[in-house]
């Protein structure tokens, strides 16, 4: 049955729970499933934005990022076009003349003879491009392009969900840590307000100045004030309050 690889890959995709792994692990699983779903492909990679730059961040073979580097350096290539223009891009023979000559050269030098790049779209926005590589010419037909597009759309949703999940988790972790720091800083400000008879903003300014003077993190200064005050115990009087 021609659709068996696609069906099994999509079924595996539907069982994804992104919390099972990191975003990178999830994307890697998506990419391996893509190769399984499209038999002519020997390996695959995903072009996406990483820290403001296009990169092949995920791949099933280390050759993929080596080839793709040619298009990121030149700013031209089928993966970039698929991503930017949200269109399927196919090279039937990297040995023939055509668009993206530097990419063709790099691919041919690595034994790749044909490629297929499809955009990964979520609500009309591209979140990346899936790139498939084959070591024979004219490996990908129109049916493969349709299959790749169908698979990529499913993979894009997984990508978007995974990104949203990990963004939310990172935000939650960051806020939790921030609240721990905040508690210590608020305690230190309270100690300084009591000791100096100043308002909250002035107490914070004292922490800022101490942090700059000693080239220490403000939260470390605050922790030191709290620790010193606790260590002094109930004998602490106003003039005994620790200096920030």
């Amino acid at each position: 049955m021609a659709d068996a690889p696609l069906t099994s890959s999509l079924a595996a995709l539907s069982r994804f729970f992104v919390g099972d792994g990191t975003l990178e692990e999830t994307l890697s699983r998506v990419t391996y499933l893509a190769v399984d779903a499209i038999p002519p492909a020997d390996f695959a990679g995903i072009t996406m934005m990483v820290e403001g730059r296009h990169r092949t961040a995920i791949f099933t073979d280390e050759t993929a990022p080596e080839i793709d580097e040619a298009q990121y350096n030149s700013g031209e290539g089928p993966c970039l076009d698929a991503f930017r223009e949200q269109q399927i891009r196919r090279i039937d023979s990297t040995l023939a003349d055509g668009p993206w000559p530097q990419f063709r050269l790099a691919a041919a030098a690595h034994g790749i003879r044909s490629t297929l790049s499809v955009p990964m779209l979520v609500e009309k926005a591209a979140v990346g491009a899936m790139n498939l590589y084959a070591n024979r010419e004219r490996a990908f037909g129109d049916d493969d392009a349709e299959t790749a597009m169908l698979f990529a759309s499913q993979a894009a949703i997984v990508l978007a969900n995974a990104q949203a999940y990990w963004d939310a988790r990172e935000l939650s972790t960051g806020l939790s840590e921030a609240m721990q720091h905040r508690a210590v800083i608020e305690q230190a400000k309270g100690i300084l307000m009591a000791a100096q008879g100043c308002d909250e903003d002035t107490a914070f300014d004292l922490l800022v100045k101490a942090s700059q003077r000693e080239n220490l993190k403000l939260r470390d200064i605050a922790q030191r004030i709290v620790d010193t005050t606790i260590a002094r115990g109930p004998r602490t009087r106003e003039h005994d309050a620790p200096e920030p």
């Binding site: 960051g174 806020l175 921030a178 939260r219």
Partner: peptide
Amino acid sequence: SGYTITGLWVAAAGFG
């Protein structure tokens, strides 16, 4: 710093 707005907002939340 490379902070996003959200990243800095989270960091600043720790300073009151």
